[in-house]
Design a protein around this nucleic acid. Structure first.
Lengths: 135, 135
DNA sequence: CTTCTTGCAAATCATTTGCAGGGCG
DNA sequence: CGCCCTGCAAATGATTTGCAAGAAG
């Protein structure tokens, strides 16, 4: 059971809710799910996992580095943390999320921070607008 | 009375709460206030303005373009919308906010969006870390 | 006066926490 | 079998809304 090992590696006991949530995240790499989203899927599948557990597990996943948390549209969304760093474009029409990475921007951020003697720990860059289909 | 005119120009009836909130924002251009922040100031000044009104007024200000809303640290903060566009660095220790503008980053964002045929309406770039004093 | 606005309290929303019962190692 | 984990319900914190009383034009 792959997820079991991933959880152990992350320092988390392997339990049914955690395995199922991790599995879901792995099958939805192209999306970014909110706790509520995860909850709905679990409901549909009659997994009997409570919303509080989803929040707890996702927070634990974040703490252990398994997932990343973003704050789009005043709501937390999560994605697996095993891909390279990237920023996001969010379509305000359909909610589609496009990931991108741009070295020029990344480097320039460091440069700007240095100018202000600011020690960057993290950053979030999010472009809002309309994706190709919604224009 | 200057604020009265600004409100009318924005299409809002000039009322005492609105004038006072607008005035406060104008005297705190260097900061970014949350609804709660505004409320506390009003309380200290015995203005007798309810928190709900603050929220309503700030939302109306945003809708009319008078102020900008940001979502730092899972909480909405507002700033007058009359200055040039800039991005933010937020100190995770003391909450200090540093504004900056970088043309290279701005241009690169447009370029990236074009690559994905994404029509940018807005963007938010926020660097999190420690400011000079908190390192 | 008539309508838009406000204050207060109650209602929501997303998220967190307390607690008693359950499941993993 | 002990301790960590879970479900459920109640608690929170931020923000919104309903409604009757109050200001603005």
């Amino acid at each position: 059971m792959k997820q079991t090992d991933e959880l152990k590696q992350a320092g988390l006991k392997s339990t049914l809710p955690r395995i199922k949530i991790l599995k879901l995240l792995e099958t939805t790499r192209d999306r970014h799910l909110s706790a509520e989203d995860v909850y709905k899927v679990m409901l549909d599948n009659n997994e009997g996992i409570g919303l509080a557990t989803i929040y707890r597990v996702l927070t634990q996943f974040e703490a252990s580095g398994l997932v990343l948390r973003h704050h789009f549209a005043e709501r937390s969304v999560f994605e697996l943390a095993d891909s390279d760093h990237h920023d996001h474009m969010v379509c305000v029409e359909c909610g589609k999320i496009i990931e991108f990475h741009d070295d020029t921007i990344e480097k320039q951020q460091l440069s700007v921070a240095k100018q202000y003697k600011f020690q960057i720990q993290d950053h979030s860059l999010c472009l809002y607008g309309k994706c190709e289909n919604c224009q």
